[in-house]
Computed example of a mutant assay.
Amino acid sequence: MHPETHLVLHHARAVELRAEVDAYRLATAARHRPGLRTRLGWTLVEIGLRLAAKPGPATALS
């Protein structure tokens, strides 16, 4: 195989791989955006943990 032919095939494959990576990055970025439901859920968890961590009024044990 001539070096020029090999170089052309190499460049064509590199373009294909770059396009495949770009498509993968776009798909991954779209999946990793937290939705409203997720953010609301974690906010409720945080509020619950704060409420559970606050000390309540002292009670007598007798």
Rank of each mutant, 00 (worst) to 15 (best):
R31F: 02
R18F: 03
G56P: 01
T28S: 11
T59Q: 14
M1G: 13
L9T: 01
G41V: 04
A60T: 10
G48F: 06
R37G: 11
H2P: 11
R37E: 14
R31C: 03
P3C: 06
L44G: 06
R18K: 10
P34S: 08
A30F: 03
G56A: 12
G48N: 09
L17D: 05
A19K: 12
R37N: 07
P3H: 10
V8F: 07
H11T: 07
A19S: 07
M1T: 05
E46G: 09
R50L: 15
S62I: 05
H10T: 10
A52Y: 08
G41W: 12
V45H: 08
T38S: 11
I47P: 00
G56Q: 11
A58F: 13
V8P: 00
L9G: 08
T59R: 15
H32T: 08
I47G: 01
V15S: 01
A58N: 03
R33N: 05
P55S: 13
V15C: 00
H10K: 13
L51Q: 09
W42G: 02
H10E: 08
R33F: 01
R31I: 02
L17K: 09
L36I: 05
A29E: 11
V21D: 00
E20L: 12
A27T: 04
G35T: 10
I47L: 12
A14I: 01
E4W: 03
